[in-house]
Amino acid sequence: MSGPLFTVSAPPHWHSGRLSRQIFWESILALSPVLVMAVIGYGLPAVRVLALAGAAAVVVEAVCERLQGRELDVDNGHALLTGLVFACLLPAAAPWWLVLVGVGVAIGVGKHVFGGLGTSPVVPALLGYAVCQISWPGLLRYDFVQLDSLFSWPLADLKYYGRAAAEAHGYADLLLGRQLGGLGACQAGAALAGGLFLVARGIVPWRIPVFFLAGLAASAFAYQLAYPDLAADPLFHLLAGSTLFAAFFLAPEMACAPAGRAAMAGYGLLAGVLVMIIRAYGVWPEGTTFAILLANLTTPLWDRIRPRAFGKGRA
């Protein structure tokens, strides 16, 4: 039978048109305020780290896919996004080899060892960061390596010099990124702006950042009630360090966060509470890295919380 050849497939025959690559490129767009503020705040050294991490992530991804004999999909933006997010966690003065090691671990181990896009059990950028943090702790002490800065590290101030030193940082300063920290991660206001864009576009489900921040604020409040002399107020914890960046760019990483509504709330809450516990009792001033990594490991458990499907509820 002659005639035109039609496309045949299972339904549906319409698609929303929103594709993975669009999600990742829009996430990079959402990250751009953070990048701009980082460059304004730290100048060329920040450009150096960002460019190196971004480029290295793309190359490592391409090499990994080539080695596995996979079709190259590095143009979908996910590797670039991961590299840039990782760079945002580093001090602007990080040595080049540290950037490369971190990116190699993030993309190579965090993403490809487990099967590539969508399979990471933990946030790849955070895995890279954690490996660097444990291996070369001194190089990731923002207050040790960023000696040319006028600012100080608010969370370290809180830990070592107490509440008064921490509260010397004005909220407006914290929001504008006038604090020492990861070159992009400390840009609290820019991270919030980008994060709201991600939520508005439906890329980040609102429950994860909201419950993350709520968990952190609630536990900071509880800690303040228990130790009024030592503890900083909850708003300080929300604005200091990488909290807002983590809430929108790290904790909701799709591959390693749960998908159910209740599960997302619980996961966010757990990560937020863990941040405060680590900040209060840990040896490291910043708590987001290990809090989110630990929360990632609980994702399979959260995914066991399932709503009762249609007709399977009360009879």
Binding site: P258, A259, G260, R261, A309, F310
Partner: peptide, 30 residues
């Protein structure tokens, strides 16, 4: 043809959009 993207065989990125839109509360992604 070309008015809607066709199906591919890309890996699931675990975004959860399917689970959230399901009218009968299936965890579609799993």
């Amino acid at each position: 043809a070309g008015s809607h993207p066709g199906f591919g065989d890309e890996a699931c990125i675990n975004c959860g959009a399917c689970t959230r839109i399901c009218p009968v509360r299936i965890m579609v992604s799993l």
